[in-house]
Nucleic acid binder design. Structure first.
Lengths: 123, 123
DNA sequence: GAAAAAGTACGCGTAACGCGACCATATTCT
DNA sequence: AGAATATGGTCGCGTTACGCGTACTTTTTC
């Protein structure tokens, strides 16, 4: 059930003991979660998602993207596109006619809109 | 802990009994989840999120948006921007210098990129 | 206003959880 | 290399807390 825990923990180079300490539980208890031998209470599950910087839905195998997800769907146009939300930032792609906009196309769009806006305010 | 269950269930106009039946558990068992008296096993928690069309993270109070979230961060440029993913679609905004792109600006960007791409392929 | 359904609370039997203890393997240190 | 320490993994026991039936109150339906 929670086999994804092991991967995420190792990606952070944490030991079972360290992780268990941060959760305030015994090493054997946490090991039980990773092996699927036991299930954690919901409060511990939330702490795990916090520690490992992912979603509970990912830990449970309900989604496949380990990155946490945004609360607001706003995309800022810089050189790189960023999806902004409260916790962190995610890379996104803009697709047009099936092909993603490359960096240069995005820059050109940005310049295009900026000059357009400047013209609209100066008359 | 799971007080959001009650809201979501009522918004679907389901009774405790009906919900419990769909989960394959006793009414009193499910009632225990809503009241916070008991916690469901993780498998049941996932089923609940499926039934109520939300995320486990929302049920646990970890995020405030009950809508499910995307699996892939891809934005398709049409007249309206859409964030595409497996389950459903979300409206998004493109922000430039703090101001969102309006529909006309997006259309102009689309036309701009299309002509640019046509030029690149025809030489 | 009776009957049915819905919501709520409790007690019992039992499944499953948390922990310490233990061992095998891997890593670190002198 | 060999001792010392840390790590990953498993097991058994005591205890927690879960699932269900049951009973009771409140609400809805006719």
């Amino acid at each position: 059930m929670l086999t994804r825990l092991s991967r995420l923990r190792k990606s952070k180079k944490w030991s079972l003991q360290y992780t268990a300490d941060r959760l305030g539980i015994a090493k054997s208890t946490y090991a039980g979660y990773e092996s699927g031998y036991r299930e954690p209470p919901l409060e511990t599950l939330k702490k795990l998602a916090d520690l490992l910087e992912t979603s509970v839905d990912y830990l449970l195998g309900r989604i496949d993207n380990p990155a946490f997800y945004p609360k607001a769907w706003k995309v800022e146009l810089h050189d790189k596109l960023k999806l902004t939300e409260a916790r962190t930032r995610f890379d996104v792609e803009l697709i047009l006619d099936g092909a993603p906009l490359n960096e240069e196309e995005i820059k050109q769009c940005i310049a295009f809109i900026r000059t357009k806006r400047k013209l609209d305010t100066n008359d």
